[in-house]
Nucleic acid binder design. Sequence first.
DNA 1: CTGTCCACGGTTTTT
DNA 2: CCGTGGACAG
Length: 696
Amino acid sequence: MGIEPGQFYRPHGSLRIDYKKSLNPQQLAAVTAPDGPALVIAGAGSGKTRTLTYRVAYLIERGVPPDQLLLLTFTNKAADEMMNRVKLLLGAQIVCPWGGTFHSVANKILRQHSHLIGYNNNYTILDREDSLDLVKACLKELDVDIKPKVGPRAEVITEIISKAANTAASIEQTIQNEYPYLTPYISLIKQTSALYEQKKRESNLMDFDDLLVKCKLLMEEFPEILRHYQERFQHILVDEYQDTNKLQSELVDLLASRHRNIMVVGDDAQSIYGWRGANFENILTFPSRYPGTRIYRIEYNYRSTPEILAVANASIANNPVQHRKKLTPIRPAGKKPTLIICRDPIQQAWFIANKIREFRETGLRLADIAVLYRSHFHAMEVQLELTRAGIPFVITSGIRFFEQSHVKDVTVYLKLLVNPRDELAFRRLTLMLPGIGPKTFDKLWRAYLSKLEALKGPECQNGPSNDTNSRSQAWESLPEVLAAISNHVPSPSKTEWAKLVGLFKTIQALGPQLTPAPIIRKIMEAYLDNYIRLTYSNYLQRLEDIDELIAYAEQFKSTNDFLAQLALLTNLESEETLIATYATDAVRLSTVHQAKGLEFEVVFLIMLCDGLFPNARAMGIPGGLYEERRLFYVGITRAKTHLFIFYPECRRSPGSQGLETLEISRFLSEIPWELFEVLDLRSYNTPGFYSSFVSS
DNA sequence: CTGTCCACGGTTTTT
DNA sequence: CCGTGGACAG
Ligand SMILES: Nc1ncnc2c1ncn2[C@@H]1O[C@H](COP(=O)(O)OP(=O)(O)OP(=O)(O)O)[C@@H](O)[C@H]1O
């Protein structure tokens, strides 16, 4: 850390930053707010994030040590960028160790104390797929006793368990409120949930929700720890507060309840994570939860032209008013947004590629251009067309880089090293071996567990086993334990098993530091390189990915840190760790969700068809349509200067060769078209259109 | 008990 | 059109 408390303290009146010059009076008031609860509620592009950034700088200048700030943001990158900005403002290196997402901060806390709540501090974090696999394993196990072959799918059960956790509700309540048709299965789902919980404990695993749930539990059950963090965090700042859920707000409330130095920032009209339990009531009820809250409104928009803002406002006016906000554009008049009616996604993509070329010729950076959409697969044709046109782009796909199966093939070895009780890791690892299926895995796992326990006695609960001594006992016995159970391995697989044991011996020989990069190299050499070549058709690409993984791993001394980082990086962030995409200037293709908080000179908002955007399934749930409309609002307000909105009249029907006609999105038909420059491309014979595709 | 082959179902958003 | 899960043969 190396930052002395008060290092940046300057007596009042001699602050380094000229706050008045960089901020408008409303922003300034929020930045220089006195201690105590504060709410900044303002529309899109009004400088909320900027205000929070200056607030951080201000607090540091006034003598608050950076390591006593808790800065909660929607992505880790957002926190990093804020701190970079603060660094520039103050002209000094600042590290804010407690800045990041709720999940990464909770993880940091739990790594110190989770032994108190029945976990080992070297627990493994499950990603979504891991959680689903574990739930499936639970269902399989339960099937022995109960026999409902029909019933909710594992995906739905996982969703319910997660929803319950995030809304701080019981499984029953969640089913009754949001999945009433599953009422007959309440007891099955509860059993599954209980078994899931038990398995996680036994295997020392935490899913994303556990990071928050267990952190809160820790604070509730250990007042002295709560006290410690309450005192540690002199000031709490939360960005994008409208998208926090009950669990998160309760956690923050706990931490803030002592000193009440909390500033939350957000816009209820931009709440787009309700499906994940986020509740914009959090921001609306903040003042009543914190009596004496100072409310700051910012009523100017610095980002967009008045014409773009007019479209956004016309759209959101169709939602019931939540919190009335004025928003006056600062920028001078520009061009009306263009509404493009086109035949199909191919024509849409063709138009976008052409426009991008035009913008590039005017000297605009590609990174200032974004194509935004509701669902990942909407970007299909745009991807093809941009590739064909040789226009570089980066796309944030649905699966994160580190969730791809070949990457996980590598990381399971590390996971088992760090946390030998990880059932999921052990399973994936054994199932990779030829001749070993689910049954053999079962036998091996049982034998493995009992050997592990016998060898080491009860699991070491030796106080905070932080990263540097995660090497302690566990992994040392791994080769021995694996060798000891080889009698359960069917004979055709014995040589492979011996290789596995050999691999772990080799790793052991690397020494006790457990540095990830060399270990991965050994794994590849000994085994996986070959496995990947044999398993995947596009193995060259995949092996390149592994090289990237190793390059990324070089930054880490500790495997435990490395694994936690992989799990906690958001989608966007993990894409950016790819060296290839890092440096080049490229157009951004992204879902609207992932574009939250970003801004671009040019935005193409595509696939505005009823059923797609708004999404048909989202409209089935209460408030769903409103949230879709907020999503549209977020999409529009990412644009600074140029906005293009597309309605393609048809698309290829899913699964077959036919064409499906699509109605125009109600988000377009419900607002006055005088706000747009309307461009109808349907009669233009642009290249490559579906019907010609279909017939050829 | 494992591995392969086929049929079916299904495309929302993510830490 | 793609991945997953279930049926069956080796
Ligand atoms: N006082 C100001 N003077 C000049 N530019 C400003 C000012 N305040 C904000 N801006 C600019 O306006 C743009 C939007 O700011 P910012 O991203 O902080 O808004 P926001 O309210 O967080 O937006 P959103 O909620 O839509 O993500 C940024 O480019 C920022 O630099």
